[in-house]
Nucleic acid binder design. Structure first.
Length: 283
DNA sequence: ATGGGGGCCTGCCGGC
DNA sequence: TGCCGGCAGGCCCCCA
């Protein structure tokens, strides 16, 4: 599901109805998502003001006045949808509860934020804001790909001696946190690197070239509101548009878009995930 | 330590 | 129309 650009799109969509706003009621409709929901979750959210809304990798963190933070992960199929938002001087109505609406936050201004997740690979937890980085789900994450700690020197160091394919290495959240299957495929295409190449066998210049291209593809995707294939929606239910810009993802059998390249996009399964790539211009 | 595979869930799509 | 296999944007866990 949602990779970094989709999660960032969701965060930005939630900002106007969450940041600085009060949660007047929380509905928790089942005891677990991927894991059990935290004990007393509804009570710990009720009456809390949201001081800030952050993103770390593919996680959203809502910092509460209580000193706790609500951790949200969308898994593969998770959505955060806003209804009843003030538009001009009237409220839109709230739709009836849908299948898989697992958690609903009722905000003081009238907005309602619904977490819907059909496959329930998503997660929520409450943790102390001050020690959020030590949370088991966050503790071993690598640097943010859009941050300064992710740079050419760092990536060269991390990939050196790695025997795993570059595709798998970039999906490893301990190396860089936030990439998923789509954006790894697209970044490798832009860098003209075969997903099958061993990470440690790439020369330094090749690895270095990946850094700005990863940033570029992520920034373009954020700009487009993410990618919508099946499940992903922005918080207003709108689709993202970056899927229109895919150059390889989901394009098995289609001609390569690189000018002058006569290759055909292949789908190769690597450790259970599809890699889409052009065997002619990605080496 | 490292790399690969299984499993968690539900829904959708294509083929028969 | 119905059933079945395959596939899906993530990630933890276990095994060799």
């Amino acid at each position: 599901m949602p990779e970094l650009p989709e999660v960032e799109t969701v965060r930005r969509g939630l900002l106007p109805v969450m940041e600085g706003q009060l949660i007047v009621r929380a509905e928790v409709n089942r005891p677990n998502l991927r894991w059990p929901l935290p004990l007393g979750m509804a009570d710990r959210l009720t009456g809390q003001r949201v001081l800030g809304l952050r993103r770390r990798s593919k996680y959203i963190l809502a910092d509460l006045a209580s000193g706790e933070s609500l951790l949200i992960h969308l898994g593969m199929s998770g959505r955060m949808l806003i209804s009843g938002q003030m538009m001009g001087d009237f409220h839109h109505d709230h739709p009836a509860l849908q299948k898989h609406d697992h958690v609903v936050l009722h905000m003081a201004q009238g907005a309602r934020i619904t977490f819907n997740d059909a496959r329930r690979f998503g997660a929520m937890d409450l943790l102390d804001t001050g020690t959020a980085d030590a949370h088991p789900l966050l503790a071993s994450l690598g640097p943010e790909p859009l941050g300064n700690d992710f740079n050419e020197t760092y990536l060269i160091g991390r990939l050196k001696d790695r025997n795993t394919p570059i595709k798998s290495a970039l999906l490893d959240q301990r190396i860089v946190a936030g990439l998923g299957n789509i954006y790894v495929c697209e970044a490798l295409y832009r860098a003209r690197i075969s997903p099958l190449r061993k990470a440690g066998a790439l020369n330094k210049a090749t690895v270095a070239s990946l850094v700005p291209l990863i940033r570029e593809v992520l920034l373009e995707a954020i700009e487009a509101g993410g990618s919508s294939l099946r499940d992903f929606r922005q918080t207003d239910g709108e689709l993202g548009y970056f899927q229109k810009t895919f150059q390889v993802y989901g394009k098995e059998g289609e001609p390569c878009e690189t000018p002058g390249c006569s290759g055909t996009i292949l789908r190769t399964v690597q450790s259970g995930r599809s890699s889409f790539w052009c065997p002619s211009c990605q080496r």
